[in-house]
Design a protein around this nucleic acid. Structure first.
Lengths: 335, 335
DNA sequence: CCAGGTCTTGTAAACGATTACAGAAATCTC
DNA sequence: GAGATTTCTGTAATCGTTTACAAGACCTGG
């Protein structure tokens, strides 16, 4: 592969002139510039970004560390972040942690060694000694959706409290008294927030949720399926179930399907996170939608700002929105 | 950030010894090794992969260039590829082309400048002068799903011909005579293959597909929705429709839903690509499933093989499988 | 006791860019 | 036409590694 030296030789100038000519710096005669451009084309020159990065101490690369791209929420995040990164001239390195703190730590180490200019992440746990150390090393970090309290970095997320409260309100108005929730891990911020909002909302409406109606999953499909099976097996099964994310909702819907439960006659159902196919279901599934594209774009924008200007921007909190659909209906036609 | 020099000073040895000690090379006394490890810990040393890459002429990074991660097929591909890459010690840089050859070209240029060790891609078009040039530059390339004929690189893909033929056979047996297809762009290999397999399969069964029943979309949702609307607006609408990928299927299902068409009584429907929620639909949607995880893993494995051993492995073709579900039924209860 | 090993270590040259600095050439000013 | 200024160019240092090569230390066997 041709180097800057080859171009210099071919054009009959020094490497400094080549560098200046190609980077568009001033102080290069028009004639030299043309010769360099022609020579560079002739030898098929492609600047070596590795060498440039070493010299410039910047890689024009960002790291995105998320639990799993297969989760539609993070798929959309990845897409939005990649778009914004690309727009700002950055490449994106992707890592899936599978909610495993050790895998997360390994990814972070790799990203630091690769000297990425910044890291965008959704940590597996609310506490992470390793991440604190990473932050201390000085790489700009922006949290997406979830965050680690002890790390002083901007957070970009959607607040679901209001929307969850609204959902509980609707269910209460529809006459539901046996509310159940399939929660995410309480170690995660979003898991805890959604659970608390649900429980508090219910209590505020005089509908305290019994412990047996609270199932804690791990944000993955299987746990949602299992939780729903357990709920349905209760003597007095709930009349309305709220799943705290889309994967567990998928599992829960499978479990409902398996026993032939009719929505909303037998059970009302709602999910946190909206996905494209919810509205195609019979009945369409009520969901709380996060402004994912905006979140991803904001996160990437903030990160590039920190990287380039060294500023310390504010966190961003957007509102999640309740999207009421047919899967929530009046209680008890079959009870 | 601490460099190898700092470690050397701290440990009282030369940088060569530090390098050797940390890389586990032989020819370092146990005593020196311990001193280096201790010193490196003390100063919080993280090797600079950029410098290493420059020296070693290898970045331990692969590029993945796909149309769009939001397409569930490519989401799964990205996940599988990332897993395999990570397993083999590589990082993954992601790029979405949106089927735009220019965007694709820009990504390839960036990847080449960043000196990725290999590129895994699903090209937007079957022809690409730029990609030919890229291949000539010597970077290992592996094609995933789609490929460019003129580039001599291994291809990893699923063959859908047999499964599409099987689908047509089933529809024929169910008595369908007005078969329609919502095809992908005929410039793409997979788009053309699925269309051809459908048309030929139909013809072979004495059910030639009229031109008005052939809609060519662009693999995106909107085009599927539009195509289905047009099909439904015909005087003699088809009794069975096959969508050539999942996004267009989603659009088509929306269009069907919008006019209140009942499946399979009014229309039988099938899609190429299976997605998690197809089986939750009422009725569940018939689909042709590709072994995506295997494809992604194979592609990554092949690419790392080329990168590391310089071999030229064979292409891999796996079989797609027809998954019959309730959305295909006997013709004409309503006709 | 010394020639010839083996082990361990350090020096210095890459890798391919950017850029400070200095010098050369061209242009301007009076 | 001399000096000042501007414009252009080249030399060489630098970024942080890895590793070829040389050399010193220590053994071994005759």
């Amino acid at each position: 592969m041709a180097t800057i030296k080859d171009v210099a030789r071919e054009a009959g100038v020094s490497v400094a002139t080549v560098s200046r000519a190609l980077s568009g710096a001033q102080g290069v005669s028009e004639e030299a510039r043309e010769r360099v451009v022609a020579a560079s084309r002739r030898v098929g020159y492609r600047p070596n970004a590795v060498a440039r990065s070493l010299r410039m101490e910047a890689t024009k690369t960002l790291g995105l560390v998320i639990p799993n791209v297969m989760n539609p929420f993070f798929t959309a995040v990845a897409r939005a972040v990649e778009d914004a990164a690309q727009e700002a001239g950055y490449s994106l390195v992707l890592g899936n942690t599978d909610e495993d703190p050790e895998k997360e730590a390994r990814y972070l180490d790799v990203l630091l060694e690769k000297r990425v200019d910044g890291i965008l992440m959704s940590p597996a746990r609310a506490e992470s000694a390793h991440l604190e150390e990473v932050a201390r090393s000085g790489v700009p970090v922006v949290f997406l959706d979830r965050y680690v309290e002890a790390v002083d970095a901007p957070v970009v997320r959607a607040d679901g409290r209001r929307a969850v409260g609204e959902l509980v309100g609707c269910l209460a108005e529809l006459g539901h008294e046996r509310l159940a929730v399939i929660s995410g891990p309480t170690e995660t911020v979003s898991g805890r927030e959604r659970l608390e909002a649900f429980l508090e909302g219910a209590k505020a409406r005089g509908l305290p949720v019994a412990d047996r109606y609270v199932k804690v999953g791990d944000f993955r499909r299987e746990s949602g399926e299992l939780a729903m099976r357990e709920l349905l097996a209760l003597e007095d099964p709930p009349t309305a179930v709220f799943a705290a994310n889309n994967l567990m909702a998928l599992g829960a819907l499978r479990a409902l399907d398996a026993v032939g439960a009719r929505l909303p006659e037998d059970v009302s159902f709602a999910s946190f996170d909206d996905v494209s196919w919810f509205e195609l279901m019979k009945p369409p599934v009520t969901a709380i939608a996060q402004p994912i594209a905006k979140l991803g774009a904001a996160a990437a924008r903030i990160l590039t700002e920190v990287v380039e200007d060294g500023t310390r921007p504010e966190s961003v909190v957007l509102e999640a929105e309740l999207v009421l659909r047919g899967s929530c209906g009046p209680v008890g036609r079959s009870a």
